[in-house]
Design a protein around this nucleic acid. Structure first.
Length: 575
RNA sequence: UGGGGUGUGGUGUAAUUGGUAGCACGACAGAUUCUGACUCUGUUAGUUGGGGUUCGAGUCCCUACACCCCAACCA
């Protein structure tokens, strides 16, 4: 894509296609306008650490970085920040690549920070020879003490003034395995009294005997994030290195390494990470949910992971639209999770075929309908998409309706079925409830006896009658049984992260985040392919579970409900 | 208590750089509806506080306050 975003038509009114620029785009446009920019093209990167699955917060960063490259005709790399073999695994690498592709993006270069371990090592020696790095024998505890505090300056390490020769010898011995893990570090020699703690002689290398998913056992020393990230950007010719706000304090160090190495110097820019209500987003907490089995897996449909959202039925388009909608800024904000939910509703409304399903069935018998008669009624597949066509649904004497669609004691504004009341069956007839049949022991409703008006058949209604309510149904003899997983929010409080004293986010888990029901669905769903998304009319959007669904024994996941004005009225006591 | 950041309706995000505070979502009200969905119309509500400069301040100055980040050999 090219730079078609430069609108300069002189009008004050933003045209309908014009997007307002976010602060990063504004800065990029300034940079590109500088004479020093030359004819370079924009180059960004998405740099995940492969120590967990990607989540919706990463999607924001992915859409930002890849989106920028598309918008400005540039490139975007995928680079795994794999400098800590203790936590990183191939499984995560694979899932990350899958998720980025699924979101609809294709990276230009695929790299790993570990690709640069040799180069980084050479640069470390270069800094040692320049007298700007030293081998330190302080252990972790001592180093912490020497570092000082937020308000007090640190003290120089007693090893800070070793000769270049000694530093070089020691560093090479670190590399060659002469010292145990944690025995020594290589540190940059900057300023122990800097108010920015990151500049108080930060560690560049630590000794760590761990198997690395790519370099195996080749290395015994591993670079720290700060020592790897900017240089990786530099090697790849990244122009704008976009990261989250907590790295802002690291920028002076990012800059220091590039300057003191005398290498190409990308520009780091920071933006606020995504926070969502009713959601935890830290990888640590998501890992904990998985490891402690509070959810079934990383791709559990209740997880805010990309794979979880995918399995839940979210589309890539809806996630991209969401990321576009929430914007990019430097202010820590909290996005209402309903914004995400509305994004998927909006997309699925346009593309999802409609179908009828009854989650909690009550049987209805039409006492005046000829026994054994079957009619095939025409139903529209998607009113939002005329091209989707229609289908035939068998209709006969017995069928199921939703438990929720019948009330014995109905409030005045309830216009579904009630004793003596009338309602239209979607695509069928107007029926009247004549009798409620109950289990003599439990008092539970077992059946409803209704009559229908033959004049009211949909499409050929000659009665001219109107009823207030229309409900969905599934024919009893042709119904397909299906397992439906009714998902709800994983947490029952807006900010599970803000746990009160003595509690953790786990104390706020929603006990009803998953309810499994045995539903009756339209027969046409027998052939529903894995991953297919539907609207169950009047209920919500559901998708065929990709892992557990089997032909003839479908399993559906509820992606999201439809907007439910009635539920809101009732909750408000306005019914 | 040091340093670095950030404050615009309920939420998110703009404001041509000092010139009518706009957009989206939500909420509310109504229209429409064989999905209490969708769609459409309307209403609602904001510059963290206090000073100052100016004809004019969200924007500049001073001051106060609030919130976030930083003391891993994590990223």
């Amino acid at each position: 894509m090219s730079t078609s975003e430069h609108h300069d038509d002189g009008s004050n009114e933003p045209s309908s296609t014009e997007r307002v620029l976010n602060f990063i785009e504004t800065e990029i446009e300034k940079d590109r306008a500088k004479p020093t920019w030359g004819n370079r093209s924009l180059h960004t990167r998405f740099p995940p650490e492969p120590n967990g699955y990607l989540h919706i917060g990463h999607a924001k960063s992915i859409c930002l970085n890849f989106g920028l490259a598309q918008r400005y005709g540039g490139k975007c790399n995928l680079r795994f920040d794999d400098t800590n073999p203790a936590k990183e695994e191939q499984e995560y690498v694979d899932s990350i690549m899958e998720d980025v592709r699924w979101l609809g993006f294709q990276w230009d270069g695929l790299y790993y920070a570990s690709d640069y371990f040799d180069q980084l090592y050479l640069w470390a020696e270069q800094l040692i020879m320049a007298g700007k790095a030293f081998v330190c024998d302080l252990n972790a505890e001592e180093m912490r003490q020497y570092r000082g505090t937020l308000t007090e300056p640190g003290k120089n390490s007693p090893y800070r003034d070793r000769s270049v020769e000694e530093n070089l010898k020691l560093f090479r011995e670190m590399r060659d395995g002469k010292y145990p893990d944690g025995a020594r570090t290589l540190r940059a020699k900057i300023d122990m009294s800097s108010p920015n703690l990151n500049l108080r002689d930060p560690v560049m290398y630590r000794i760590l005997r761990a198997h690395h998913h790519r370099t195996g056992n080749k290395w015994l020393i591993y670079p720290m994030y700060d020592w790897a990230h900017g240089q990786s950007d530099s090697v790849e010719g990244i122009t704008h290195s976009i990261c989250t706000l907590e790295f802002e304090n690291h920028r002076p160090l990012y800059d220091w390494f590039c300057v003191n190495l005398g290498i190409y110097h990308p520009r780091q820019m920071e933006f606020a990470r995504l926070n969502l209500t009713y959601t935890v987003m830290s990888k640590r907490k998501l890992l904990q949910l998985v490891q402690e089995k509070h959810v079934q897996s990383w791709d559990d449909p209740r997880m805010p992971t990309i794979s979880g959202l995918r399995r839940r039925g979210y589309t890539p388009e809806s996630i991209r639209a969401f990321c576009e909608k929430i914007g990019v800024a430097r202010f820590n904000s909290m996005i209402d999770v309903t914004v995400l939910e509305n994004s998927i509703r909006e997309h699925l409304n346009k593309i999802a075929p409609r179908v009828m399903a009854v989650l909690r069935p009550i049987k209805v018998v039409l006492t005046n309908y000829p026994d054994g008669q079957v009619e095939y009624l025409e139903a529209i597949n998607n009113p939002e998409d005329p091209g989707a066509g229609s289908r035939k649904i068998p209709f006969s004497r017995e069928f199921y309706i939703e438990e929720d669609d019948f009330r014995e004691d109905a409030p005045s504004k309830y216009f579904r079925l009630k004793p003596g009341g009338e309602v239209r069956l979607r695509y069928a007839y107007i029926i009247k409830c004549e009798k409620v049949v109950k289990d003599p022991n439990t008092g539970a409703i077992t059946e409803l006896h209704c009559t229908y008006d033959p004049q009211t058949r949909s499409g050929s209604d000659t009665s001219n009658r109107k009823v207030k309510g229309t409900i969905h149904w599934v024919p009893a003899t042709h119904a397909l049984d299906a397992e439906v997983r009714v998902y709800d929010r994983l947490f029952s409080t807006e900010e599970p992260d803000a746990a009160e004293a003595g509690k953790t986010f786990l104390d706020y888990m929603n006990p009803k985040s998953l309810e499994v029901v045995h539903a009756k669905v339209e027969p046409c769903l027998t052939e529903a392919p894995a991953g297919a998304r539907y609207q169950f009319e009047r209920l919500g959007y559901f998708c065929v579970d990709v892992k557990d669904s089997k032909p003839g024994k479908p399993v559906f996941n509820r992606t999201v409900t439809l907007r439910d004005t009635w539920a809101k009225l009732e909750a408000r006591g306005d019914s």
